[in-house]
Amino acid sequence: MRRSRTAISVEILRAAMEGAKKTHIVYRANLNFEVVNRYLAMLEEKGLIEKKENLYQTTEKGKEFQEIARELGL
């Protein structure tokens, strides 16, 4: 079964809550590097995740997005 873009985004944000390297995000979200690269670029552009050195960290806006998605059952 395919996951929605929202579900994938939430998984990536969840993986990066405490800061995570790209490899950790790939394994945690069960995606490949090509897909993760596209999603990370989109999430950074939207201000939901930020890159600090070689770690990705979910922003406050990203945490709010996760909460809303969880409440909606996405």
Rank of each mutant, 00 (worst) to 15 (best):
M1C: 10
R2L: 11
R2E: 14
R3G: 10
R3H: 11
R5F: 06
T6Y: 04
I8V: 15
I8L: 12
V10W: 02
V10N: 05
V10Q: 03
L13Q: 00
A15E: 05
A15D: 05
A15T: 05
A16V: 05
A16T: 01
A16Y: 00
A16H: 01
M17R: 09
M17Y: 07
E18Y: 09
G19Y: 01
G19P: 07
G19A: 10
G19T: 06
A20T: 03
A20D: 07
A20N: 08
K22I: 08
K22C: 08
K22R: 14
T23N: 15
T23C: 08
T23E: 15
T23L: 13
H24N: 13
H24Y: 03
H24G: 11
I25R: 01
V26K: 13
R28W: 04
R28V: 06
R28L: 08
A29R: 07
A29F: 02
N30R: 15
N30G: 13
L31H: 05
N32M: 13
N32I: 14
F33Q: 12
F33E: 12
F33R: 13
F33A: 13
E34Q: 15
E34C: 10
E34S: 14
V36G: 04
V36T: 12
N37A: 11
N37I: 06
R38C: 00
R38G: 01
L40T: 01
L40Y: 01
L40G: 03
A41D: 12
A41N: 11
A41W: 09
M42T: 03
M42V: 03
M42R: 11
M42E: 10
L43H: 00
L43Y: 00
E45L: 08
L48G: 03
I49T: 02
I49C: 03
E50D: 07
K51R: 14
K52R: 12
K52E: 14
E53N: 12
E53M: 07
N54W: 03
N54A: 08
L55A: 04
L55W: 01
Y56M: 06
Y56N: 06
Q57Y: 09
Q57N: 13
T59E: 08
T59R: 00
T59L: 05
E60Y: 07
K61R: 11
G62S: 04
K63G: 11
F65M: 10
F65S: 05
Q66E: 13
E67S: 14
I68E: 07
I68A: 05
A69Q: 10
R70L: 15
R70E: 15
E71K: 13
E71I: 13
L74W: 12
L74H: 09
